[in-house]
Design a protein around this nucleic acid. Structure first.
Length: 324
DNA sequence: CATCAGGGCCCTG
DNA sequence: CAGGGCCCTGAT
């Protein structure tokens, strides 16, 4: 292994989290539609992943210790050193925000129960959340997704982790932790290009520079209303209409589903209209009509349900669209 | 062997 | 606002 940096996380702390009910553990922590990035591992009932908090890397384990209607989570935090109570709480808060643990789904569930198409989907996924990553990490992932096939995205992410990530050993896992923005800010663009990220090297560097320079305050952004938030996010170099739509999801803005990329358009055409290709505009009108302010979350349910089915049955039309 | 589009975006005219 | 260019890869 030519990973330059690796560390063992010998210190561990346990704490508990109580999501609002209903809570769907596996649907929330494992997303079949996401590409495998090397920074998380999942088995039913347990998720391991890495998280950079306040410029320090941690390994995290989340275990399902409750039921859908009486949710309880055991969170174990692995670090290089003992943590204070305040630090444990801070990390718990990050986890709670990223998994949207305290989301009230009552109205959403009532809405989906009245939707014929969504009834079976809801019966599988009731309590599932749309999850987020730290803003910088989400941006990196969305940038390597741009104009690339899944295979290439996986390769780019792997190369980036190999060159700039830190392999964290904890709880029998070996998972990559993200670099700090300062690292890519300082790296020559040619070095990034050598990792075969292509023109995305420029976006990665510019974004890293903006974060390293303290221009971005993710927590302050959370307080902005949708349109202002969108405006701010679009100022980030390399963020356009497709990426900003994903980012609004990271900020739990479930009413902000305002863009459909080509491959998603084909998938929604099938699921909503049973047609090959419906105009994007018509799809957006339809999701607004059906799900209103919950449209992004509802669309997420449909999508994850589809990709979960893909793991268990063959869907030839979908395979053609995914193009590994 | 060449050509092309891909889970976009920036820049230019 | 339309269209070209961008890095690289696998498909054709």
């Amino acid at each position: 292994m030519d990973t330059k940096h690796q560390i063992s996380l010998g210190s561990s702390h346990k704490t508990e989290l109580r999501p609002t009910a209903p809570f769907h553990f596996d649907g929330t922590v494992h997303k079949p539609s996401h590409f495998p990035a090397g920074d998380s591992a999942w088995e039913p009932g347990t998720l391991w992943w890495t998280q950079r908090v306040a410029d320090e890397l941690f390994g995290l384990k989340l275990q399902n210790a409750g039921t859908a209607d009486a949710p309880l989570l055991h969170l174990t935090i692995f670090g290089e050193r003992p943590l204070t109570t305040e630090e444990i709480n801070a990390i718990s808060d990050v986890v709670a925000y990223n998994f949207d643990l305290y989301l009230d789904l009552a109205r959403f569930n009532a809405l989906l129960e009245r939707d014929e198409l969504m009834q079976p989907v809801l019966s599988h996924w009731r309590g599932m959340r749309l999850t987020a990553a730290p803003l910088y990490e989400s941006l990196v992932i969305y940038i390597v997704l741009q104009n690339a096939t899944v295979r290439r995205t996986v390769q780019m992410m792997h190369n980036l982790f190999l060159a700039y990530g830190t392999l964290l050993h904890f709880d029998g896992q070996a998972l990559y932790g993200f670099w700090s923005p300062q690292v890519l800010d300082a790296a020559p663009e040619e070095d990034l290009r050598a990792l075969k990220v292509g023109y995305r090297a420029k976006s990665l560097k510019r974004i890293s520079q903006q974060f390293a320079g303290g221009e971005i305050n993710a927590k302050a952004l959370r307080r902005l209303p949708n349109q202002a938030l969108k405006r701010e996010l679009l100022k980030l170099y390399g963020v356009g209409p497709a990426t900003v739509c994903y980012l609004m999801g990271d900020f739990h803005r479930y009413d902000a589903f305002e863009h459909i990329s080509r491959w998603e358009q084909k998938i929604y055409s099938r699921l909503l209209f049973e047609q090959e290709l419906v105009p994007a505009e018509r799809i957006l009108v339809e999701v607004e009509r059906r799900w209103g302010c919950w449209k992004m979350l509802a669309a997420h349910y449909l999508f994850e349900d589809l990709f979960w089915r893909r793991e268990h049955e063959t869907l030839p039309w979908l395979e053609e669209l995914i193009r590994l």
